[in-house]
Design a protein around this nucleic acid. Structure first.
Length: 744
DNA sequence: GCAAGGTC
């Protein structure tokens, strides 16, 4: 008789354990309770390495162990803070994970082989090592394998079993390294900042126990908010002028936009205006019509869901995710934490789409997809663990709470849109020449709304244009000069912030929202009613203080450097010990200096608070709303610091007022991202002058260095016949300037 | 009373 092998499979979460068991048993597994309510044990009879086997599949809930100092380190005052850099750190199973650990020990005792089925990422490898540690407490002789799978499908799971490997200790080490550094550095700087400010700042009423934390993710997140704020503070609006040609035809008023966009030199615009006016007629140089499409959205991943929720549903990322998790645990949608934005080839999209055929709102559209066949627009990211977020069951509004419904509806509509087809239309472009100046009007005719039928979150509308024919002459146009002013970029909203965190590798998809919550909770930043973030003076002071000391604590680069080191550990190029020592040495040196200069932290904070006191009388506090002049006005977006509830201080006006002037229009900060500013519209667009052939003046390079063209004023008046030089740089060239100078 | 990372 062949003896039955007994094995224990452990996944990272119950859901995966269930899926794996289901596939291996072809649905014939039995469910048992374990010690933890959320982590069941699924039992099945199967095969292992060609032998019949009795397999138990269970799970943990993410990390099984946590890092911490010993109990005597808990007293902040009685230990030198610097000891955070060398006090022993212990890795233990926290109390709430103990039931899971008990299950693992007990089940290990009944088997001889353990297979790790955690997610196929860095943290998953480390969680695997934690599982092994605990299981070995129950059975020291376990043989341990690692299954690698990218999705819970029959093909992937069976492939994983055929190709079992071992845990990769280098990856385990990399995570241990990150974890220890985060704890030591976080604890050291948190204690330094907190104890200093509690003693030295009146921001904290005596006995106030508010924590002023430092973390390798929360600080760069704060840094983004502060950087954008300062960019706005130092923004100086600049006036510009542009020409507009208006033509009324077939009862429609058409505005032709200037091909130069805008110039920052009033005199130049006046001169060009006069030229156009004197010309008195325009010639339609070209009428083009070309197909234009709007692409349907790509399959939904976590970051995109968060951003859409913030932008379209006006929720916080954290709320979006907590609702999505609830929808997931109730079986309405798939797992919402995924970095994957492409559907696997064998994914049965048509069935998932067909579930919605009967829906009142989008049923007809779903049915049409069914007829044409689902054709998802895929991105190119995969976390090798979860598919893109998609609906699993059909729900009606009656099934869900209002907020849940909004998120569910977004997921469904996004899914259907992704599986459908692009919107298509025709774009008409009419080019009008008035003398040497070029003007353009565009129209749009939508031919197929495509995915937009089901996706109200995107807007695309028809723009009617009357008929124009090539070569025709237009004399009844109106010419005018419009003026405007460059505007500062907007403060960051949560979607912007998530994009920046994603871009700079701050945190993970699962933690973006948490770091943002953290800087709110710590009162480093406040949120305006429009959802945009304003730094509070505590946040500003922390960033400034470290900047003044010369340490880039709030800059994303530090985290990026660590990430590079962790990669090196994973590749075997460096050891955990090397990286740990190097990083701890670096941060310890910064710490020692920061401790010696800690007065800068309270001094900076006091400066902000004092400037608040003196400005408070003249600058009325704006409850969460910074005055925003659009176009006109002063153009200084946020001149008020976030209204952040503290016991000690009322909302304040910024003390950064007046600093950093001279940066000019819309400087691109590292925190970049689309500010509202645009670069200068260019002078140039040169070309031949009919009356006076162009003269390129090599001796007179313009500001951008390309050279300039000599022109003559045609207008009757004191300047008639005078010549001027103007930039000859072609449209679209980077750094176009608006050089203008009278010729001698 | 500190971090960030998993997940319920």
């Amino acid at each position: 008789m062949v003896s039955m092998r007994r094995l224990l499979y452990v996944a990272e979460k119950n859901d995966v354990a269930k899926g794996v068991a289901n596939i291996l048993s072809k649905g014939a597994m039995q469910r048992r309770e374990g010690r933890s309510k959320f982590n069941k044990i699924y039992q099945l009879q199967g095969q292992f390495q060609g032998q019949p086997a009795l397999i138990s599949v269970t799970s943990v809930s993410g990390h099984l162990m946590g890092n911490d100092f010993a109990a005597d380190m808990k007293r902040w005052e009685s230990n030198p803070i610097e000891s955070c850099f060398d006090a022993p750190v212990y890795t233990t199973v926290p109390e709430n994970m103990e039931p899971i650990a008990r299950t693992l020990r007990e089940e290990s005792n009944k088997v001889d082989t353990l297979v790790i089925w955690t997610d196929c990422d860095r943290e998953g490898e480390n969680i695997g090592a934690e599982i092994v540690k605990v299981c070995r407490e129950g059975n020291r002789h376990l043989d341990v394998y690692r299954a690698k799978f990218s999705e819970v499908t029959s093909a992937a799971i069976n492939r994983a079993i055929q190709n079992l490997g071992r845990l990769d200790q280098r990856i385990v080490d990399a995570v241990d390294c990150r974890s220890e550094l985060d704890l030591r550095i976080g604890a050291a700087f948190t204690r330094l900042q907190t104890l200093h400010l509690q003693r030295r700042s009146r921001l904290f009423a005596s006995g106030d126990k508010q924590v002023v934390s430092y973390g390798s993710c929360q600080f760069p997140t704060l840094g983004f908010v502060v950087e954008r704020y300062k960019e706005i503070e130092s923004f100086i609006p600049e006036p510009y002028w542009r020409l507009i040609v208006e033509v009324t035809r077939e009862g429609m008023k058409v505005e032709f936009a200037w091909d130069r966009v805008r110039l920052f030199n009033h005199e130049a615009v006046d001169v060009l205006y006069d030229e156009c006016r004197d010309e008195g007629r325009g010639i339609v140089e070209e009428v083009t019509k070309k197909p234009k499409s709007r692409w349907r959205p790509t399959a939904l991943d976590t970051v995109e869901l968060e951003k859409l929720g913030v932008r379209k549903l006006k929720m916080s990322a954290k709320e979006v995710m907590s609702i999505a998790e609830k929808l997931y645990s109730n079986g309405w949608i798939s797992y919402p934490r995924t970095e994957t934005n492409k559907f696997p080839k064998d994914f049965n999209l048509n069935n998932l789409v067909a579930l919605h055929n009967g829906d009142q709102q989008w049923g007809a559209f779903a049915a049409e997809i069914g007829q044409r066949g689902a054709n998802p627009r895929n991105g190119n990211k995969s976390d090798e663990a979860h598919p893109p977020i998609h609906p699993l069951k059909h729900a009606t509004q009656a099934n869900l709470q209002p907020r849940e419904w909004q998120v569910y509806e977004l997921v469904v509509r996004h899914f259907l849109a992704c599986c459908s087809w692009d919107a298509k239309g025709q774009e008409t472009k009419v080019t009008l020449m008035v003398g040497e100046e070029k003007f353009v009007a565009t129209g749009l005719q939508i031919e197929d709304k495509g995915y937009m039928e089901v996706y109200p979150y995107d807007k695309w509308s028809d723009k009617q244009l009357p008929r124009f024919t090539r070569g025709e002459e237009i004399t009844d146009f109106m010419l005018r000069i419009a003026d405007g002013e460059t505007t500062a970029p907007l403060l960051l909203n949560e979607a912007d912030l998530i994009s920046l965190m994603d871009k700079y590798g701050i945190g993970t998809d699962a933690t973006h929202a948490e770091h943002i919550e953290k800087i709110k909770e710590r009162k480093y930043v406040g949120v305006q009613p429009d959802g945009r973030f304003l730094p509070g003076f505590l946040g500003l002071a922390l960033v400034d203080a470290y900047d003044e000391m010369g340490y880039a604590m709030s800059k994303p680069q530090l985290r990026a450097d660590l990430e590079k080191q962790l990669e090196a550990i994973c590749k075997g190029e460096r050891t955990k010990q090397e990286v740990l020592e190097e990083q701890l040495g670096k941060y310890r040196a910064i710490f020692v200096q920061s401790e010696a200069n800690q007065h800068l932290i309270s001094a900076t904070l006091n400066r902000y608070m004092d400037s608040n006191a003196s400005l408070a009388a003249t600058a009325p506090a704006v409850a969460g709303g910074a005055p925003r002049g659009r176009g006109r006005g002063r153009g200084r977006g946020a001149s008020v610091v976030a209204q952040i509830p503290t016991n000690a201080v009322p909302p304040v006006a910024a003390s950064t007022r007046g600093r950093g002037r001279g940066r000019g229009r819309g400087a691109n900060a590292a925190a970049g991202g689309g500010g509202a500013t645009r670069g200068r519209g260019g002078a140039g667009g040169g070309g031949a002058f009919p009356r006076a052939p162009p003269v390129t003046n090599d001796q007179k390079p313009c500001m951008c260095g390309i050279g300039s063209t000599l022109r003559t004023v045609q207008k009757e008046g004191p300047n008639k016949g005078r010549q001027f030089w103007t930039c000859n740089k072609p449209m679209g060239a980077p750094d176009k300037c608006n050089y203008f100078e009278w010729a001698a």
